[in-house]
Structure formats: C-alpha cells, structure tokens
Design a binder for these strands. Sequence first.
RNA 1: GUCCGGUUCGUCUAGGGGUUAGGACACCGCCCUUUCACGGCGGCAACACGGGUUCAAAUCCCGUACCGGAUACCA
Length: 551
Amino acid sequence: MSVRVRFAPSPTGYLHIGSARSALFNYLYARKVGGKFLLRIEDTDLARSTEESTRSILDGMEWLGLDHDEEIIFQSDNADKHRVTAKKLLAEGKAYRDFTPKAAPTDASVKDAIKDRARANQGEKNMRDNPYRNLSAQESDTRATAGEAFAIRLLVAENGNTCFHDSVYGVQERDYAETEDLVLLRSDGHPLYNLAVVCDDIEMQITHVIRGQDHLTNTHKQILIYEALGVTPPTFAHLPLIMAPGKGKLSKRKHGEIVSLTTYRDAGFVPAAFRNFLALLGWSAGEEKEIYSLDELIEKFSFDGIHRSNAIFNFKENDPRHWTDDKALWMNAEYIRTMPLAELLPMVKAELKAAKLWREEYDQESIALSADIPSTALLGADGRPETVALENRQIGSHSWYIHTVDLIRSRFFTLKDFSSQGRAYFSEDFDFDPAAVAKNLGKFPELREWLPVLADRFASEFSESSPPYEGGVAEGRGGSLPYTEENIETVIKAFTEEKGSKLGVIMNGARTLLTGVAVGPSMLSVFEVIGLERTLMRLRSQVAWNTVIET
RNA sequence: GUCCGGUUCGUCUAGGGGUUAGGACACCGCCCUUUCACGGCGGCAACACGGGUUCAAAUCCCGUACCGGAUACCA
C-alpha cells in the first residue's frame, strides 16, 4: 500500500510554527517515499473555527512550498459518518450510553480544573467505575427511547494494555487502567476529537500519522477505537515539541506574533530559508551542514533523525537585533546573499513594489537575466547555494538594477532591508539613520565643508554617469575620467591626502550622505552604483547635516 | 497525584564503551579592505547529579533532581 500522510490543523488561529513544522515533516516524508500528502481541516469546534484562519493556514503552507495532494477534507463535513460509527459501536456492545448529566463547564482555567480533579483522585481512580457501564442493553434502550440525554463512551476492557511502536519514541505501552472510557459522542450528538480523527484517518486511508508529541496519549485512545472498529492502526511518528526560551510553552497568548508563520513572511523571510530552519528544529541528518535545499531535505529525511527531546525556539523579546531565533535570521541572510539571483529578484521586486520603489524598467533587466539562469541550479557542487557571477552573465551597462541588488544583498538579513536599508539606492527620498549621522558626521564637523568640495572635485574630474534615476542634474561633467571604482579611488585618496585626513573618515562620511546608513558594500562600488550625478547632489546636500545633534 | 517522555556549549545539534567531546548560530578578538560590513582565521563555552557494570562510561543499568507532555461531553 502506498504511503498516505496528512496534516490536520484546526483552524482556530494562524498557522503556528510548530504546526508548520509538523506539516513540513509530513510533506518531506510523503515526497521522499512517493506517497500522498493530504490536508484535513479539523473544524469540528464550531465556536472557535474560522474561515479566515483556514485561509491563513493555506497561505502559510503555500508560502512554505508545501503543496498538498487531493482535495482538502473538512472534518465537519463528516460529522454524520462519525455519529454512525459511534452508534455502530454502541450496537455492537463496544460502547455504552452514559446518562450522567453533562457537567457544568468550568470556563475558568479548564486545565487547572482537570489537574485539581486528577490530584484529588490521587491516582487511585478506577477508570471502570461508571455506573452506566454495565447497564443492561434493554434498560439503556428504554431510557434512550424515553428521551433521556446520553453520551456514548467507548467500553474499554478491564485488563490489558494498548501498545504501539512509535517511529520516533519506540515502543509505547499503556495499561487500560490508565485510560478512561472515553466519550465518543457528546450528549448533544457532537462527535469528539478522537473518534473524528480515527474515522477520518481510516476513510482517507492514512498509513502514517506524523504529529506532535502532545498526542502521545491520544494515540492510545485512538488505538482502542481502531481495535473496536476492527481496523489495523496506521504507523505513528510523534514529533518533539518546539518550546519557548525557558522551556515554557510557545503560545500565542504569551508570545504573540513570534509564533505565527505569517510573521516571518511579513518580516521579509525567504520561504526556503525558514523552511530550512524549521527542518533543523528537532531533526538532523547527522551531518555538519546547515543549508539544505528542499530536494536535499526530502532525500535525507528519515524518522531516525528525529529527536525525542524538545527544541527551544530562541529569541529575545524587546531586542530588535534578536527579535527571533538568531539562527533563523542568519539562515535568511545566508539565503539572501547566496541564492541564485534569478530566484531572489522576484522577491526583491515584490518588496520594492510594496514600498513603492519599483520602476518598470528594472523588469526588462530581470527578465534578461532570468532567461540566462536555470532556476533549478539551486546548489553548487559543494552543496552551498550558488552565487551567480554577474560578469559571466553578459549583463550590459543597462543592468544597473540587477548589479545593485547583487551588490547590496551581501549585507542584508531580510527582504525588508532592500526597501529600508537599501532605500537610498532606489529613491531620493530616504532617511538618515541618526546613529550613522552621529558616528560618521557628527564627530567630524570638518566634513560639512569638505564633502561639498569633494563633490566639486568629482564634477571637475569625471565625465560620465548614467544610472536610471530621476531628478539628476546634468552638470559638472568637466572632466574626462570615467566614473569607475578605480578612478574614484584615485581622486578620493588624493583629496584625503590634501586635507590631511583619513580615508575612513571621508569614506564613512560619504557613505552616510549617500546611503543614509552606516553599513554597506565597499564604498567605491557604492559611489559607482549611486552614479555621479546623485553622488554630487548628496555630497552637497545639507539635509543630513541639519539632523546632527549639537553637543 | 498518576502515566509517558526528555536532559551534550547560552541556543540548534554531532557523537552512543577508549574522541584534545565535533559543527552551526550568538558573543568576543585578530586579519583583510588607509572605511562600516561581507569574508578569512581564532577564542570563550557543554556531556544534570549520585551509584553501579567495566581495564575503560558522555555513551550501558539503577536511582535522584529538574524540565516537558498527557490526564475534558477541547482540539
């Protein structure tokens, strides 16, 4: 029988990164063995389920590139079948009616109530002491016919145990005495989770159930249902949990957006990078290697590589530099600076569009490049993402945009950086980072006089500049030197010497005026990419200087 | 309480009787750019504790501690 796995989230909020990882592992396993990866929305909790969150889950999976097979199953559509199954078990004497009035819901901290009750029982509770357990079929029928409300509970045997081999946790045994006669059907006719899951998994012909370790005890209950139904249970593989720093639960309530997959999409993560990061949380191929393409993950995936211990998703609240797991951030930066340009370009385009920095002429250039680079060439021979060598791609002088993206990506952590840190490359309307201004301009007041002079020097030395931007003033082409890195270096060095200053001071001052920020690629490339005319304007501009805080 | 898991650098992890306990991130330093970064090199830093078994234990066994999960007419 071919493998069929499923991801079965309940649509009661956005896609949690823990769920996303479960989905990923299901996906990887299915793709590895050539099986089917199915999706089932467990929307039986009508009160909490929303269409919006179903949408969000679907979006999240699409973003991660986890395409599912076959039609999406909505569990609520199967409620009738679940009821039929419960009644069948009742008729067969494998379940019984419980006429105990439904307990008043303790809305205040349900978990604590359960805990308290369990503690009160001191572990001595007899799971078989339900008074209706041994009611005669006749009396049970009579009371039911009379209209008395009842729940249907599974009749769990007195002696014995449930046992299964978990692909991750090994042999799991549980004495029947530890398992109550679980409710299959609520007194209002609503099928409960364990019954619904088993029925659906049977109907969907699921062969492997891969889910969070928090379901380990549910598995024993579900096996009892499988046995009552006379169906062989699927193989189970439980995954370790993803915890918050301090080993606490990683919850929406306590940690907010950090646990939502969409946060990473919106924060400028490259899907492949986040997927890569997620795969390495609780799983390892046993190699000294961090970067894995999707194909490699599929190829290397195995249950043996999954841990039994929980992993901590490490982040520091209130620390912008470490707002999420450092490794995730690093991995994203790694992808941004090393992935094939042809794959990065569309993401940068989307980002620039969103920031209203996009220009149509950039597109012509992207297309020319994409055609030249097979998008399947994800990884180089050494297993690392391949960097595209622009020189070899016959990028003409018109490819300013692509050249610029390739240049500035080496210092970026997220796609957002292209429109924030990198804004000055694409627009005249950019801000100056106060820290950069203070460090590189504020400390060197002489630059206020010098940099415009440097601009004059440039104007008289250089001859040509043709970047695609608007608002440039066609002036000062008195010189004959082409505006290239080599020539810029010569001119600046001479200027620095003349002033008896240090190159670093001039360079960093210019960097701040030209880009608004303190970090970036080699300054010589920055001059070139910004172009002569914009360089002149920005070196002469007083805007940044006016933001220097006088001390 | 009971049941079930777990415990290797701060974090993700490799290793599963003999290793200088390896890698990655983070952090720190040096080098490279008469510049910030990127990059290169290096540093700091771990086998929870106690008993056993053994010539030899991070590794196997037992116990303790701590952490997590589960214990619903929730999913």
